[in-house]
Computed example of a mutant assay.
Amino acid sequence: MSEARYRRIATDIRRRIAAGEWQTGQPLPSRTELAAEYRVHPQTMRLAYDLLRRTGVLEGEERRHVSVAHPPAMRTLTDPDAPWPYSSETTDTRPHPATEELAERLRVAPRTVLQHETVECLDPGGRSAMLVSTWWRGRRRRHASFVAELGVASLGVEQAHALGLLVDALAYRVVRTRLDEHGAPVETADLILPMDRWTIRLAG
């Protein structure tokens, strides 16, 4: 089976959706039906459907009917320290030794054991809107202020899976470091925001 074949099929399905053959929220034919239409093995069609789900074109669980996905809501980030107003899920709480970068951000020695959590922030429809990974040393403390830097990062495997995007896809990366009243860092976080779901508005 050629890898290019299922990608060509996925491209053609995108074209048919854009042409209005299937509307937002409308189920697509089963994999078996479309495999017969495209004259390919059902496994090839499964790969095409998986690719379209990962890239946000289709939505639905594997082995069930999939439908044309609703476009992800576009949100504007103006305050990277504001609490998330919708539901969220904590997906990882394993401690981590400080990398060189984290050690510099928190002003600790490299390989210092840091507490950690990764939280998946969900939009009102239950779709993943943002990933927030936070690190701190010892007991979590209150902060008085924060600093933030905006950049771009390519997604790793776990991030891409959580956000329904492709590995190595580009996303906004906001590095937020919370500071105590003396300006010393108490925790630092990476906010990963998919570019198709967010705009960034800087305060003036």
Rank of each mutant, 00 (worst) to 15 (best):
M1N: 04
M1A: 12
A4S: 11
R5P: 00
R5S: 07
R5F: 04
Y6W: 07
I9H: 01
D12C: 06
I13A: 03
R14Y: 08
R15E: 15
R16K: 14
A19I: 07
G20I: 11
E21H: 11
T24A: 10
Q26F: 04
Q26K: 09
P29N: 01
S30W: 10
T32A: 11
L34S: 01
A36P: 01
A36F: 08
E37I: 02
Y38Q: 04
R39S: 08
P42I: 02
P42W: 02
Q43V: 13
T44W: 06
M45H: 03
L47W: 14
Y49K: 00
D50L: 10
L51Q: 05
R53V: 15
T55N: 01
E59I: 12
E59A: 15
G60Q: 00
E61S: 11
E62T: 13
H65Q: 15
V66C: 08
V68Y: 07
A69S: 14
P72G: 09
A73G: 01
A73L: 04
R75A: 13
T78V: 13
P80S: 02
P80Q: 07
P83K: 00
P83V: 09
S88T: 10
S88K: 07
T90M: 03
T91V: 15
T93F: 04
P95K: 10
H96T: 08
A103L: 06
E104I: 03
R105Q: 15
R105G: 11
R105D: 12
A109L: 15
P110H: 12
Q115W: 06
H116Q: 13
H116R: 10
E117Y: 11
T118K: 08
E120L: 14
L122P: 00
D123H: 03
D123C: 09
R127Y: 02
S128C: 04
S128V: 06
S128Q: 11
A129L: 04
M130N: 02
L131T: 07
L131C: 10
V132P: 00
V132C: 10
S133V: 10
T134G: 05
T134R: 12
W136K: 02
R137V: 11
R141W: 05
R142Q: 13
S145D: 12
E149K: 08
L150E: 05
G151F: 07
S154G: 10
S154W: 06
L155A: 05
V157W: 14
V157P: 03
V157C: 08
E158G: 06
E158K: 09
A160P: 12
A160L: 13
A160E: 12
H161E: 15
A162M: 06
L163G: 08
G164R: 02
L170A: 12
A171V: 09
Y172H: 13
Y172S: 01
T177W: 01
T177N: 02
D180F: 00
H182T: 08
G183I: 06
P185W: 08
P185G: 03
V186D: 09
E187F: 05
E187T: 06
A189F: 04
A189M: 03
D190Q: 07
D190R: 04
L191M: 03
I192N: 06
I192K: 02
M195Q: 15
M195V: 12
D196R: 09
D196F: 08
R197A: 11
T199V: 08
R201H: 10
R201L: 09
L202D: 03
A203P: 00
A203V: 14
G204V: 14
